[in-house]
Amino acid sequence: MASVNLELTPIHQCSVSGCTFNSDVSCHAPAITVGDHGANHCGTFLGLPTKHGSAAKPVVGACQLADCSHNTDLTCTASAVEMGTSASGETECLTYSAA
């Protein structure tokens, strides 16, 4: 039987003010997906004007960035992540580190 990692990586902070799950630099999505077709994007970003969510402990549910040193079997192993906006305006994982 396969084991499941129930200690998922917490989201330390998110500075993406345009995301509906962000309130006071804090992510309120229950879980996020990092990576969007191989790009370092937050796959959970939602740009609605109304703020939603109330997750007390948001986590990285999955990481699709195979080339990140924190990725093991699609699970983030960093102690915590920070999400933010890149210079190009994309919402991404600022904790990403190339393997």
Rank of each mutant, 00 (worst) to 15 (best):
H70L: 05
L48Q: 11
F45I: 06
G89P: 05
E7C: 07
C68I: 04
S79A: 08
D24G: 08
C19P: 10
P30G: 12
S54N: 06
G53C: 01
H41Y: 14
V59Q: 08
P58S: 08
C19W: 06
A55R: 02
T20R: 10
C68T: 01
F21G: 04
L46Q: 15
F21R: 04
Q64I: 00
C42T: 02
T33W: 07
H52N: 08
A56W: 00
D73L: 03
L8G: 06
L46T: 15
V60I: 12
E7N: 15
S88A: 15
F45C: 04
V60N: 06
T75P: 00
V25G: 00
L48H: 12
V60C: 06
T95I: 05
Q64G: 12
D36G: 07
Q13M: 05
D67S: 13
S17M: 12
C63E: 00
L48D: 15
P10A: 08
F21A: 03
G61L: 00
K57G: 00
S97K: 12
N71C: 04
S69H: 04
C76P: 03
T50P: 02
H28Q: 13
V60S: 06
E90D: 13
V4W: 10
A98R: 03
H37A: 15
G53L: 02
T77G: 02
C19F: 05
C76N: 04
G47V: 12
T20F: 03
L6I: 15
S69L: 08
T44P: 04
Y96D: 03
D67P: 07
Q13D: 12
T85C: 14
Y96M: 05
C19D: 09
N40Q: 07
V25Q: 12
A87N: 12
A98K: 05
G43T: 12
G38Y: 03
N5F: 09
H37G: 09
Q64T: 04
T77L: 01
S3A: 13
G84E: 03
H12G: 08
C93V: 02
S17D: 14
V81C: 01
A62M: 00
C27W: 06
A2C: 10
H70G: 05
S3Q: 14
